[in-house]
C-alpha cells in the first residue's frame, strides 16, 4: 500500500505536530508507504477561497498534479484538506475549460494536472484499503474500556456528493466502525457531524466557544470518556480552545480529544511517548493509562 502524502500546511507540523508525528509513525507501523509531497501548498482551507477562488484552485491543482506524477492515490490527514482538495477536484472534472486555464499557471512551474488523482483521508485508507479485519488483527491494546465520541469534521462529510459517499456508503459510519474494530465503544451523539467552529474561532470567538462547549458536553452527557477527530483544525478547537469554551459556558468540561492516528496508534501498540500526547491542552493522561 503506497500513497502520495499531503501532510497539510503548518498546522500538522507546527500547531499540532503530534498529528504529523503520530500519522507518519502509524503508517510506518502498518506498512503503509508514504511519499511526502514536500512542496504541496496549503489548500486555502476556505480562507483563500473567500478572497480568490482561482488561487485556491491553483494551489490544489498543483498538489493534485504532484500526486498524479507519483501515480499513487493522494492521502490526507486532515478533514479540511480532504474536503477542500476534493471540492477542487470535482470542480476540475465538471469544468474542464476551467482546469485548462488553471493549468496555464501550473505549466509555468512545469506541472500539469490531468484530472486523475484520487484523494483519500487516512480514515478511509484504514477502513477501505487497509481493511477493518486486518486492523482488528493488529490490535494489541484493545480500547475496551473506552467510550469514544467520534467527531468527523465538516469538510470530511459535506458536500457528500463530492466525497464519495454514494459510491462508499460505509464512509457515513467510518469512525464508529473503526472505533469498534479497535475494541472501543463508539458514543452516539448529535454533534458528531456538526461544526466545531474553527473557521470562525478568531472572528467570532463567542460562537466558536459555544459550539465547542455544546459538542463536548453532549458527548460527555452521552457517556464519552474521550473524543477522537480526523481533523487537526477541529482538534485545535475542541482541545486547544476547550478551556475557553468551558469558561464561557461557566462549567467544567475536561474531555480529552485524540487525533485519529493517536487512537489507532495506541491500539496497535505504538509507544505512547511517541504519539505526542504532551502537546494536548486537555490532559490525556487518564485515557492513555486506561489503554
Amino acid at each position: 500500500m503506497s500513497y502520495a502524502f499531503f501532510p497539510g500546511c503548518d498546522v500538522p507540523r507546527k500547531s499540532t505536530p503530534e498529528l504529523y508525528v503520530s500519522a507518519v509513525g502509524l503508517c510506518q507501523k502498518l506498512g503503509i508507504e508514504l511519499e511526502e509531497l514536500e512542496y504541496a501548498p496549503c489548500t486555502g482551507s476556505g480562507m483563500i477561497q473567500s478572497k480568490d477562488q482561482a488561487l485556491g484552485d491553483t494551489f490544489n491543482a498543483s498538489t493534485l498534479a504532484m500526486a498524479e506524477l507519483t501515480e499513487k492515490p493522494l492521502m490526507t490527514i486532515c478533514s479540511t484538506c480532504q474536503g477542500v482538495i476534493s471540492q477542487a477536484n470535482a470542480r476540475f472534472k465538471e469544468e474542464p475549460d476551467y482546469l485548462g486555464e488553471i493549468n496555464k499557471t501550473l505549466q509555468e512551474g512545469g506541472l500539469e494536472y490531468k484530472g486523475t488523482t484520487e484523494v483519500k483521508h487516512l480514515l478511509w485508507v484504514l477502513t477501505e484499503d487497509f481493511g477493518l479485519d486486518r486492523l482488528r488483527s493488529m490490535v494489541v491494546r484493545p480500547l475496551k474500556d473506552l467510550r469514544i465520541a467520534p467527531f468527523y469534521g465538516c469538510y470530511l462529510l459535506r458536500p457528500s456528493a463530492i466525497l464519495g459517499y454514494a459510491e462508499n456508503p460505509a464512509r457515513a459510519s467510518a469512525l464508529e466502525d473503526l472505533i469498534g474494530a479497535l475494541g472501543g465503544t463508539a458514543v452516539d451523539f448529535r454533534g458528531k457531524k456538526l461544526c466545531c467552529g474553527y473557521p470562525i474561532v478568531s472572528d467570532n470567538e463567542r460562537n466558536a466557544n459555544a459550539m465547542i462547549a455544546n459538542h463536548t458536553l453532549e458527548a460527555k452527557e452521552k457517556g464519552a470518556d474521550v473524543m477522537v477527530t480526523p481533523c487537526p483544525l477541529c482538534h485545535m478547537n475542541l482541545d486547544g480552545a476547550q478551556p475557553a469554551a468551558a469558561d464561557q459556558k461557566g462549567t467544567r468540561i475536561g474531555l480529552p480529544v485524540l487525533h485519529l492516528s493517536q487512537m489507532v496508534g495506541l491500539a496497535v501498540g505504538m509507544d505512547a511517548s511517541g504519539l505526542g500526547f504532551e502537546r494536548h491542552t486537555v490532559s490525556t493522561k487518564d485515557v492513555v493509562a486506561r489503554v
Partner: peptide
C-alpha cells in the same frame, strides 16, 4: 457573510 462557519450543512 463573515459569521458563516463554512460547514456546508446548508449546501448538503
Amino acid at each position: 457573510v463573515w459569521d458563516c462557519t463554512r460547514c456546508n450543512m446548508c449546501v448538503e
